[in-house]
C-alpha cells in the first residue's frame, strides 16, 4: 500500500526561481534562505519518496479568469513549465503518474471534492520553485508528481476548513492506493506577504511564527478562520496558507517537525520552510 512519509512546506515566489537560475546560493541576501534546504534534502535522500503531491496555486500560466477552478488536479504523464512573462528560464518537464492521479480523483470525488481534472497542465513557479528547492536534480532522479491546484487568485477562495478537509480526503485516498509508493506532500506558498495596494509590503512575523508552530501539533487551530481573517493577519497573498493547511490535513499519523527555517525577507515575502515527518 502507498504510505505518506511526510509533508514539506516552502515559499514559492518567482524571485527564488530567478536566484536559483543565477546560482545565488552564497549571496549574502539569499544565503539565510537557501541554507535552510540542505537538511531537508538529506532527509529526502534517506526517505526517498517516489511521488510528490504538490499543492500550489496557479498564478496565471495554466488557468485564466475565463475558467478559474477552485480545485484542480493533474492527470498527465508529464507536466511542462513555460514562459510566465518575466524572464525566468523555462525548466525541464516533470514526470506525472496518471494511474495514481486517477486513483486520487476517484476517491476525492467519491468523498465530495469535485475536482477539475487536467490531462494537460502547465506548471508555474508555484510548483516548479518548490520542486527545484527540494530536488535540484529532479530530472535525473525522475521523481513523479501530482499537481494539485487550489484557487488563491480570485475570491471567493475555499476556506481554511475546506482546504484542511480536502487534505484529509487526500490522505485517505493516498493510503488506499494498492501500490507500495512512498508519497510526500508539499504545501507551498506563504507565509505573510502582500503585493498589491497601499498595504503592499505587509509582513506579520508574530502570526507567521504561530503558523509554523501550530501547523505541526494543532492545525485545527486555524479551522474557524475565514479567508478575510487570513488576509488581515497574513496579507493578501498570505492567504496561500490554505495550501499548507491542505498539506497538513493529509498527514494522518504522528507528525514530527524534523527541520524548519523562517526568514524575512525574500523579495516581499516572509519565507517559511518545514519538514514534517509522518510516522505510521
Amino acid at each position: 500500500m502507498a504510505r505518506i512519509v511526510g509533508g514539506l512546506t516552502t515559499s514559492h515566489i518567482p524571485a527564488i526561481g530567478n536566484a536559483i537560475a543565477r546560482k545565488m546560493f552564497e549571496d549574502p541576501y539569499w544565503k539565510p534562505f537557501f541554507d535552510g534546504y540542505p537538511p531537508v534534502r538529506e532527509w529526502l535522500d534517506e526517505v526517498k519518496p517516489d511521488v510528490a503531491v504538490v499543492i500550489y496555486n496557479d498564478h496565471g500560466l495554466n488557468f485564466f479568469l475565463d475558467k478559474q477552478p477552485t480545485f484542480a488536479i493533474g492527470a498527465a504523464p508529464e507536466y511542462r513549465n513555460d514562459d510566465e512573462g518575466w524572464g525566468i528560464p523555462t525548466i525541464a518537464p516533470f514526470k506525472g503518474d496518471p494511474a495514481f492521479s486517477w486513483h486520487l480523483i476517484d476517491n476525492l470525488v467519491h468523498d465530495d471534492f469535485d475536482l477539475v481534472t487536467c490531462q494537460e497542465m502547465l506548471v508555474d513557479h508555484g510548483f516548479t520553485v518548490p520542486m527545484q528547492l527540494f530536488w535540484p536534480n529532479y530530472a535525473d532522479i525522475g521523481i513523479k508528481t501530482v499537481p494539485l491546484v487550489i484557487n488563491t487568485v480570485q475570491h471567493p477562495l475555499p476556506s481554511p476548513r475546506r482546504c484542511y478537509n480536502l487534505g484529509k480526503s487526500l490522505g485517505k485516498a493516498i493510503e488506499s492506493y494498492p501500490e507500495d509508493l512512498k508519497v510526500v506532500i508539499l504545501g507551498t506558498g506563504g507565509l505573510s506577504h502582500q503585493l498589491d495596494g497601499q498595504r503592499a509590503g505587509f509582513i506579520n512575523k508574530t502570526f507567521d511564527r504561530m503558523c509554523m508552530e501550530k501547523i505541526v501539533d494543532d492545525p485545527e487551530h486555524f479551522l474557524d478562520m475565514s479567508i478575510r481573517d487570513l488576509v488581515v493577519e497574513a496579507g493578501a497573498q498570505g492567504a496561500e496558507f490554505i495550501l499548507w493547511l491542505a498539506m497538513r490535513g493529509a498527514l494522518t499519523g504522528k507528525v514530527t517537525a524534523r527541520h524548519s527555517n523562517y526568514h524575512i525577507p525574500i523579495s516581499n515575502t516572509a519565507s517559511g520552510l518545514l519538514c514534517l515527518e509522518n510516522a505510521a
Binding site: L65, V153, Q154, H155, P156, Q194, D196, G197, Q198, R199, A200, F202, S226, R228, V231, V232, A236
Partner: peptide, 17 residues
Amino acid sequence: HNKEPIPGTVMFDGTQA
C-alpha cells in the same frame, strides 16, 4: 460573512474580475 473592507487592500472578487 464579513465583507468589511481591509485598508489598503482590494479583494479581487467577482466584481473586480
